[in-house]
Write a protein that binds this DNA or RNA. Structure first.
Lengths: 216, 216
DNA sequence: TAGATTGTTAATCGATTAACAATC
DNA sequence: TAGATTGTTAATCGATTAACAATC
């Protein structure tokens, strides 16, 4: 039998496999030719081909011995797995540099992400334009979320206000939070939080540089 | 004996342990009181206390039964592990929205990161100011890297130019790359790359929302 | 056909969790 | 002292890697 136990139509993917599927998805955007082999993918990512085959065995797409996996088919299945064809309405909270940079980012459309509003609590910022969005006061949050059926809230405020903003988002019924503040948010179980904390990457960089210095 | 085999003075930390140590480090910034227990840390991060104790057992810092770990001592050891007290000179390549946002980011100083220059290849941008840095042409890269002993290069250019920029950085002798372009860079073995790709997080968000939708 | 590459099972490896003695 | 919490060993769990039959 193909695959493993399913959960209401969705396979249970091991976490590391899921993480690599994201890398495969990105990599396929740049792959040329009709077919790609596990060997090719593995080399580009610096992992083992057996790993790639094992990961892809969780998908419906089958490879052809001697030829490899059909790029278009793989792309399509991964697109579906990640649901990127489906439109998702998003609001940004915090119209500082980071919030503005995100509001201006052109790459979201490809992932079915549509930024419908940006909020701030600073009266100075309210009414100003960021990209083609007018900065709104937080009191409008609930209305906007309902009106546009917003599914994701992006937190771009200082860490001191992050929990407070998270509470607001949760109170509006938002179930997905993309948190750019360097803090662990407390949210109900059914709300999912994805953290994007560049200070954590900094620690990796500094540690590794440090480590090499002490070695040589 | 405390710890495990050492590598020239540095313990070999399991990768997952290292990732959690970064979370502990961040969390300690907000912890109040002189001591903290594994139970407290675990609860805040949603993991098991045994896991926390096991992780911390890789460090020199010892906890006190019935009391916990001394916050200051733990902080200090983690600061050293990540080398954040040590100054690291950094250059940013790409003076677009993202590069500018990073150049303006005030939080780097706390991690010993000093942005010494920002580069762009667009003649229009060269000479303009981003934060208090004048945008420089790429031909000055080598000189600046040597002059300021730059250790990290931050790539904030479109993915089409990312590999090219990486090559330039490597040619200047830079050993640490912080890559914001959504592409896997090819670099010599002794160069370390940390990827920061928000599109990958997007896939996680979209997948999880998708998954819930299909469940309910 | 012969050779190459897949898909899958079994073996290995590594990380997490459980258990519990040590000790403040 | 009694109770709570650590540090560490052993048991369990899960992921990776190796091996190889299937097959294009």
């Amino acid at each position: 039998m193909k695959g493993n136990s399913k959960n209401e139509g969705f396979m249970m993917l091991p976490k590391p496999t899921f993480e690599r599927l994201k890398l495969y998805h990105r990599l396929l955007l740049d792959v040329e030719g009709e077919y790609v082999s596990s060997e090719t993918i593995a080399k580009l990512l610096g992992i083992q081909p057996e790993q790639v085959r094992k990961d892809l065995s969780y998908l419906k797409t089958m490879g052809k011995p001697k030829i490899g996996y059909k790029v278009e088919e793989l792309k399509k299945e991964l697109d579906e797995l990640f649901g990127i064809k489906r439109k998702t309405a998003v609001v940004i909270v915090g119209a500082g540099r980071l919030g503005s940079a995100l509001a201006n980012y052109q790459g979201f459309a490809k992932y079915g992400i549509e930024i419908v509003a940006i909020f701030d609590k600073d009266p100075e910022k309210i009414g100003q334009f960021v990209s083609d969005l007018m900065v709104l006061p937080l009191k409008d949050l609930n209305r906007v979320v309902r009106r546009f059926n917003v599914e994701i809230g992006v937190i771009c405020v200082p860490k001191e206000s992050a929990q407070e903003v998270a509470n607001l988002l949760v109170a509006c019924g938002i179930k997905g939070i993309w948190n750019f503040a360097p803090i662990e948010l407390e949210v109900p179980e059914d709300v999912l939080v994805v953290n994007e904390d560049i200070t954590q990457s900094l620690l990796t960089l500094k540690h590794l540089l440090n480590r090499r210095r002490n070695k040589n």
